[in-house]
Design a binder for these strands. Sequence first.
DNA 1: GGATCACGCCAAAGCGCTTTGGACATCGCC
DNA 2: GGCGATGTCCAAAGCGCTTTGGCGTGATCC
Lengths: 341, 341
Amino acid sequence: MNLKQLSALLELSQTTVSRALNGYADVSEATRARVQAAAKAHDYRPNTRAQALATGRSRVIGHVIPKISTHAMVNPIFADFITGAGETYSQCGYEMLISVVDVAEEEAAYRSMKRRGLVDGLIVSAPRMNDPRIELLDGIGLPYAVHGRATGTDRPYSWLDVNNRRAFARATDFLIDLGHRRIALINGLEAMDFAHRRRQGYEEALRARALLPDAALMRQDEMTEGYGWRATREMLALPDPPTAFLVSSVICMLGVRRAVEEAGLTLGRDVSAITHDDQLSYLREDGPVPTFTATRSSVREAGQRLARMVIDRIDTPEAPHAHELLEAELIIGRSTGPAPR
Amino acid sequence: MNLKQLSALLELSQTTVSRALNGYADVSEATRARVQAAAKAHDYRPNTRAQALATGRSRVIGHVIPKISTHAMVNPIFADFITGAGETYSQCGYEMLISVVDVAEEEAAYRSMKRRGLVDGLIVSAPRMNDPRIELLDGIGLPYAVHGRATGTDRPYSWLDVNNRRAFARATDFLIDLGHRRIALINGLEAMDFAHRRRQGYEEALRARALLPDAALMRQDEMTEGYGWRATREMLALPDPPTAFLVSSVICMLGVRRAVEEAGLTLGRDVSAITHDDQLSYLREDGPVPTFTATRSSVREAGQRLARMVIDRIDTPEAPHAHELLEAELIIGRSTGPAPR
DNA sequence: GGATCACGCCAAAGCGCTTTGGACATCGCC
DNA sequence: GGCGATGTCCAAAGCGCTTTGGCGTGATCC
């Protein structure tokens, strides 16, 4: 059933039927009701491609996943983030298009998306320091919103971010309050903006309490379980090992715990650790006290809100850029305790 | 730059330019070369929406994620699977559309996708026993391929699956060889087809060695870390606890390990465990011997191949249905050892 | 009573592509 | 020289929608 057939059936013009369904005022309420009833009865849905062609808007938002190499890690927060964004999209009548592209072809991919009229807007994920994509997308003229921020870019853009600096400063502070002095940082790759900010927060908090950051206690890498384990194991073997760890993700934290336990130590007693927790659904726990003390912020909610943000960019490009800074909660679990003496 | 402008520039008709670019024979090689050069020089990309409207094919493949409730788990294999599928799609000139829909509206979502001409085909994920989606999609007339199988459906359909039955039978057999007699199964939800098959394999292997499946040693639930921990903890507290565990996912396995260690036991010595491992990229390890003994099969590769399978369905709907049964490797790690006496 | 206006409807153009059904040369062949 | 075959190209008609501009009709106002 298409517009033509539906309007023939109703003995109305395509114009009137279209305008009736799209809420224009110059249709009498009587005919509008009649049209809506018929549309419902025949389960009429306008063809998206025709609609897009006629309006110039595709009602699709793109998410680009740059692929480093064949074996590179897929971001574990991806699934929950997508779910959040998808919820907003379906509420707002948008579709989500995901494009896996080789990192070398990322720029070409954006250009192609624009030229082919594939998407109305984009979500930019995992911004790096001085991320070139912001300038690129402004140049291309594709609305977007960034999940995170890109230190070093001076042009305005819309973003939503967790206050990573403050979260890690608070976590560090909390560990210092517990008497810890040698606090390690198991960070994500610091070319990533969020990891950079976390280190800032960590170092600031140390300095504010007259502690000197020690390069031997700082690591950065892709946040896998294996990395958490390796880093912890190595640092516990130092002559003057840390008594506490600040960890960038729960996945890493799993590795940290493994290393701590393998060393015959108990987490929360002999060694403390705080992780950032994106509330990934498949790692959720139940029970009164969480296993891990964590700075917690829902990545699914971030997806929901960021999706709304791109849609706003598309609808009102002239509006000023939006910024949302989510504060992470510091949730006390069983992985922290007073520093051993 | 659109077709009209490009053809004006070349002083050719739109027809000729279009046919030149689409490889039709009735264009001289000289003009074809000229057209291609101009298209390249101006980075011409046909508008996807117009192309789709004209051809009736959108070159988009849909993935539907049914959302149980606001807090339901997002499948952890999702990200890697999507990445694999996305790789194939970009090679074949397809786009991937992801739709998060409330489970109650799943059927309506499929219908709508078809009517709106949004997608040319679909991937069906996480089939349940007697999954109604297969009949539904056949009725709607949307090509699809299933990731897994749906026991109880007698109509033919294209699928790709891991040989879950054999994988779990082999794993069980291996544990029996090591002297284990009380082997627990920490399964996924058995309404899911894969979990059902895993239990079959497990029970068959037990019976083949004259062991009786014990309901007290079998659990099923959503495969979270917390579930693995809870199930293990409870079973270890039984009067006659299991000495080995068969676990449905690495995420669960993390919980199993936690429970084992909390009980003061050592995995691979006091208690053995084998998990199914989808080779999720963010849980990957390095090192010579893996931590976990596992039945291993790459979900990313599954994504790649299944994407190819839907594309084939779209291109040649009259071809017989394809089936691929991937065998999981049994990889020996450090989580298994001889049964303690 | 005629001008004005709002209301409700519609014909037709257009979005950017593909495809059908020729048209026009050129060529080889009898 | 005429005829069919072949090789190149093109005008125009769609694909299914939205939107512009206009057309009647009846009510309103001086």
